[in-house]
Simulated assay, not measured.
Amino acid sequence: MVRILVAGAVAASLGGCATLPTPACLPPSQPMLSAELAFGRNIGDRLGVSDVEFARFVAEEITPRFPDGLTVVDSVGQWHDIARGRLVRERGKLVSIVFAENPAQRAALGEIVELYKRRFRQHVVMVAVRPSCVSF
């Protein structure tokens, strides 16, 4: 039941992307969406998701959903653990994806989040989506 509620919350939050304003882009740029996904790598208080495991996750789950390309960057993040009353710092991966507005691809972001959380016993994956002007 909790998974259904979480999946619904993710879908609802990503559904808000439909209301993002389309920017006025100067040629040759085109309006697209930019998504950043922040993946923590700790399991408990220890590094649990290795570089090899993350690369496998990208190859198996992210790349098939976004075959046009993406960028992966090593990161160090922090968040406030309310339950334990302390600041937690952890190594992570930041994935940037640029794509044309498409309900299927917005849904794919939610799928990626849920798959990562299940596979690596994570509580959250941060997702930020914003309109962008992009040229290649």
Rank of each mutant, 00 (worst) to 15 (best):
R3S: 10
V10L: 01
G15Q: 03
G16E: 03
P21D: 06
P23I: 00
L26M: 10
L26S: 13
L26Q: 10
P27A: 11
P27V: 07
P28D: 03
Q30F: 06
M32A: 05
M32L: 08
L33D: 03
E36Q: 10
E36T: 13
A38I: 08
F39T: 00
F39S: 03
N42W: 07
G44Y: 06
D45I: 05
D51P: 09
D51F: 10
A55Q: 10
A55G: 12
F57P: 06
F57G: 09
V58T: 14
A59N: 11
I62V: 12
I62Y: 15
T63A: 12
T63F: 10
R65S: 09
F66K: 00
T71D: 11
T71K: 11
V72E: 14
V76I: 14
A83I: 11
A83H: 14
R84G: 13
R86L: 15
V88L: 11
V88E: 12
R91G: 08
G92C: 03
K93N: 08
I97D: 02
I97Y: 01
I97F: 03
V98M: 09
E101W: 07
E101D: 14
P103Y: 01
A104F: 08
Q105D: 11
R106L: 11
R106I: 10
A107D: 14
A108R: 03
A108F: 07
L109T: 04
E111G: 01
E111W: 02
I112D: 06
V113P: 01
E114I: 15
E114V: 12
R118L: 11
F120N: 08
H123D: 15
H123T: 14
V124S: 14
V125C: 05
M126A: 08
V127G: 03
A128K: 14
A128G: 12
R130F: 04
